[in-house]
């Protein structure tokens, strides 16, 4: 299993925001979704996931609500706030630029 350190801090935030942009989700589902969408490359342990979620909530980028889950249990569902949506667009943009720049260098040399 890939260690959370593989996911550099800050990048996880972006991934969470991106995933929540689709629909409200609880912690477990977010972890599963990241794993699936990255073709099993990225695995987020809960030791990294939950602090990140709580931090984003404190920053007002996401909000939480208790709902009944698909398996009939109470679960905490996170969703994106409008501030979060704005932040996500900005971070995604920045990420695109950064990674493009890095791949440019990596490929050229």
């Amino acid at each position: 299993m890939s260690k959370p350190t593989d996911l550099v801090q800050g990048t996880l935030d972006l991934l969470i925001l991106k995933i929540l942009a689709l629909e409200p989700m609880h912690g477990w589902a977010i972890a599963q979704r990241i794993r699936q969408m990255s073709n099993e490359v990225l695995q987020v342990g809960q030791s990294a996931l939950y602090p990140a979620l709580h931090k984003l909530e404190q920053q007002g980028l996401i909000e939480a609500e208790w709902k009944v889950s698909e398996n009939n249990r109470r679960a905490k569902y996170y969703s994106l706030t409008s501030t979060g949506r704005r932040a996500m667009a900005k971070e995604a943009d920045q990420w695109e630029r950064l990674s493009a720049a890095i791949s440019l260098i990596v490929r050229t040399i």
């Binding site: 550099v8 801090q9 800050g10 935030d13 706030t81 704005r86 932040a87």
Partner: peptide
């Protein structure tokens, strides 16, 4: 990543940045 992280962390206390 660190740069990005700090960017996010910087906004930590700023309720003022929120809509």
């Amino acid at each position: 990543g660190a740069a990005l992280g700090r960017h996010l962390a910087d906004r930590a206390d700023h309720i003022g940045d929120c809509e």
